[in-house]
């Protein structure tokens, strides 16, 4: 479904700050797969997402989505098939616009000159009710006035209101308080299940990396260090992950943001 072939990306090429963020990176994801991704800071997790979503073009290699070559497709074109949610709840929504205006833009209903209709409002209200955040009666509220959790839930709704082929979640619950994070995560699970989305999720929580999804990747220095799925993954615990990392990389997994529990 998603295929990355020999992708490379180097930042600040030719300077002292040269950083090879992805080197000869290859990955194939099947339709309906739910892949969790872990790795230390600077391992290339976000760079990988940026490459897939088209935030920049790669230095070499080829990216295909559903058999279509998207290596040089601009970000806004890829957004038709790829939804993305960032860690920062501020990034996915427009603060100066109301909830219904944000949703209307994401929902892509009607032509360029269509207005928000009563049917649209009813549709939005129904979708918002499913979030269970009390937003369904606040269609006219400015998004900038919502809490981080509410904004992230709205971002999730906006990213999936037209179900994408692929959903990229970049530590999308990391900036929320534990209760809200759990709620947004369970909403995410529901959306993925209901729409049978293919999903890649970056997480810094090793336990949820194993609990969620069907496959786990560990990135290290711009490449895939470990790729487990199926039976092998079922029996694994966090300590197994750490041990495997040590054995494969020859170093201890050292990351102050990594949650071991």
């Amino acid at each position: 479904m998603l295929k990355l072939e020999h992708i490379s990306k180097t930042f600040n090429s030719g300077t002292q700050n040269e950083k090879c963020a992805l080197s000869d990176f290859s990955l194939s994801v099947e339709a309906g797969e739910y892949v969790t991704i872990i790795g230390a800071n600077g391992a290339g997790k976000s760079t990988l997402f940026n490459a897939i979503a088209g935030s920049f073009f790669t230095d070499s290699g080829k990216i295909t989505l559903d058999g279509k070559d998207i290596t040089f497709a601009p970000a806004h074109e890829r957004a038709r098939e790829i939804g993305r949610i960032f860690q920062d709840p501020m990034l996915g929504t427009c603060p100066g616009m109301s909830i219904e205006e944000n949703l209307a833009m994401a929902a892509k209903r009607g032509g360029w000159f269509s207005h928000i209709t009563r049917a649209d409002r009813e549709f939005f209200r129904e979708k918002l009710r499913a979030l269970d955040m009390g937003l369904e009666n606040r269609l006219d509220a400015q998004v900038g006035l919502l809490s981080g959790g509410q904004r992230q839930a709205l971002t999730l709704l906006m990213a999936t209101i037209v179900p994408p082929r692929l959903l990229l979640l970049d530590e999308h619950t990391a900036a929320l308080d534990p209760g809200t994070a759990e709620k947004v995560l369970s909403l995410t699970e529901t959306v993925i299940r209901e729409n049978r989305l293919t999903c890649l999720m970056i997480t810094h929580n090793m336990q949820s990396a194993l609990d969620l999804g069907s496959r786990t990747l560990m990135l290290h220095q711009g490449g895939i260090l470990m790729d487990v799925s199926g039976e092998e993954r079922k029996g694994m615990g966090v300590s197994d992950l750490l041990e495997r990392f040590r054995a494969l990389s020859g170093a201890a997994l050292d990351n102050d943001r990594m949650l071991l529990g």
Binding site: T93, C94, P95, A159
Partner: peptide
């Protein structure tokens, strides 16, 4: 407001 949000809605 937020050009990234526009791109995410597949608008250039």
């Amino acid at each position: 407001n937020n050009p990234d949000c526009v791109r995410a809605s597949s608008i250039n």
